[in-house]
């Protein structure tokens, strides 16, 4: 095994991921910062509070969830970073994003591989909701919502 070549390829892969992250984190942080300063973040959060509250999340967490599913897990991560949620919410949100993300591209991939893509997507979505409910119920520090 060629160690130098592996280090080189690994570095390139790592830098590529950093670049991918930068492309979503920087705009996401900018957008959230502007939303926050202009007071819109609070308003959006208030609208979505009733739905996200079921999972023990504040309303603005929905922004991360939507980004993760429409785009990639990196986009969701970028928004989560920008929001700077407390650890409990970050864990619940992360579990949801990890189980269901890139809904469009990964479902297309699964379909291409020849599996029943609709069932795969449905299972992931149901699992996401169940896990979030369980986490909100089990993790200490909840109850206020």
């Amino acid at each position: 095994m060629d160690v130098a070549a592996s280090v080189k390829r690994g570095t390139r892969a790592g830098l590529l991921v950093l670049w991918e992250l930068a492309k979503v984190i920087v705009p996401a942080v900018m957008l959230i910062h502007v939303l926050e300063k202009s007071g819109w973040l609070g308003r959006i959060s208030d609208w979505l509070e009733p739905v996200m509250g079921i999972f023990g999340l504040s309303g603005e967490a929905a922004l991360a969830l939507v980004s993760a599913n429409l785009s990639t897990i990196y986009a969701g991560l970028g928004v989560a970073v920008a929001l700077g949620l407390p650890a409990r919410e970050t864990t619940i949100l992360a579990a949801m994003m990890m189980i269901n993300h890139s809904a469009i591209s990964e479902t297309a991939l699964v379909a291409k591989a020849g599996a029943r893509a609709g069932w795969v997507l449905l299972t992931r979505t149901v699992t996401m909701a169940v896990v979030a409910l369980l986490l909100n119920w089990l993790l200490p520090g909840g109850g206020a919502a």
Binding site: S6, G14, L18, V26
Partner: peptide, 18 residues
């Protein structure tokens, strides 16, 4: 602050080498 957030993740490169 966005650029700072990304810079804080520099060690990911080490993970990808692994």
């Amino acid at each position: 602050s966005g650029v700072l957030e990304v810079a804080r993740l520099w060690w990911l490169v080490l993970l990808f080498i692994g």
